Amino acid sequence: MLINADFTQRATVAAHDYDWVASSQPGVERVMLDRVGGERARATSIVRYSAGASFAPHQHSGGEEILVLSGTFADDDDSYPTGCYLRNPPGSSHAPSSPEGTVIFVKLWQMSADEQVKVRIDTRRPDAWQQEGNREVCPLHTSASETVSLVRLPAGGQMFSAIVENAEVLVLFGGLVEDGRHHKAGSWLRFPPGEYPQLHASTKGCTVYFRDGNLTGLSSKEAP
């Protein structure tokens, strides 16, 4: 299956264009933002659990990245409310569920094969954030190939100040504006190398998930 699989082209999915598709597990639906492969795919998705939905224990050979957008996500070791960020490294396993229901942002098969550390960050904590110029940044992950963070921009603040090598944005709160077009909360955008997106925060500012670096994920030898 190929969805927004050409990384040389811009890809955009607005919240009002979400196409919810039932997964193989009852009570779990997903919006496929990009996907390269079948069930074991390099994929970026919005996933919605109804109250009480769960998965049987399973392994993620290529690793899994999760940001809890709403509700509470439960894993083997704990429960994670809105704003929690998780990285489960390649080879890890878990039995996810949500007693009360949740919506999460999920990335699969997009980690380096040598990543080994399980990460849990509560982005609601004030000490998780740092000031960088006119923006606030919550660092989530940094490696030689990518940087992942949450970014808060003030009203009118520019998202980018130069040409991007690769970049991906999910609008969490507020909105981004580009040439009069408003990307509201829930909008997902991916930019190819060489583009200079003219994005700025709306009048109420915005908070985004931001990733730049090697967005294609694993090499051809490692791909599922």
Rank of each mutant, 00 (worst) to 15 (best):
F55P: 06
P57G: 03
H58L: 09
Q59V: 12
Q59E: 14
S61V: 12
G62F: 07
E65C: 11
E65L: 13
V68M: 06
V68F: 05
L69I: 15
L69P: 04
T72S: 14
T72D: 13
A74M: 08
A74E: 15
D76G: 15
D77E: 14
S79N: 07
S79I: 12
P81G: 10
G83L: 07
Y85D: 11
Y85A: 06
L86T: 03
R87C: 05
P89Y: 09
S92L: 07
S93C: 02
H94D: 14
H94M: 02
A95M: 01
A95P: 05
A95D: 10
P96R: 07
P96W: 13
S98M: 11
S98L: 12
P99Q: 12
E100H: 09
E100F: 02
G101H: 06
G101K: 04
T102M: 12
T102R: 00
V103M: 10
I104H: 03
F105Y: 15
F105M: 08
K107L: 07
L108R: 13
W109K: 01
M111S: 08
A113E: 13
A113M: 14
D114I: 03
E115D: 08
Q116D: 14
V117M: 10
V117F: 01
V117K: 15
K118D: 01
V119M: 09
R120Q: 14
R120Y: 09
I121L: 14
I121W: 12
D127L: 03
D127R: 08
W129F: 10
Q131R: 14
Q131F: 00
E132K: 02
E132A: 11
R135D: 01
E136V: 00
L140W: 07
H141T: 07
H141K: 08
H141W: 04
T142K: 11
S143W: 10
A144I: 04
A144D: 15
S149G: 00
S149F: 07
L150P: 02
L150N: 03
V151K: 02
V151Y: 00
R152V: 08
R152I: 01
A155F: 05
A155Y: 12
A155C: 05
Q158R: 10
M159A: 14
F160Q: 03
S161P: 00
S161G: 13
A162E: 15
I163Y: 01
V164L: 01
V164A: 06
A167Y: 10
A167P: 07
V169M: 10
V171Q: 06
L172E: 09
L172G: 12
L172K: 02
F173A: 12
L176C: 04
V177N: 04
E178G: 01
H182R: 14
H183T: 00
H183L: 09
K184T: 08
G186Y: 07
G186C: 10
W188M: 02
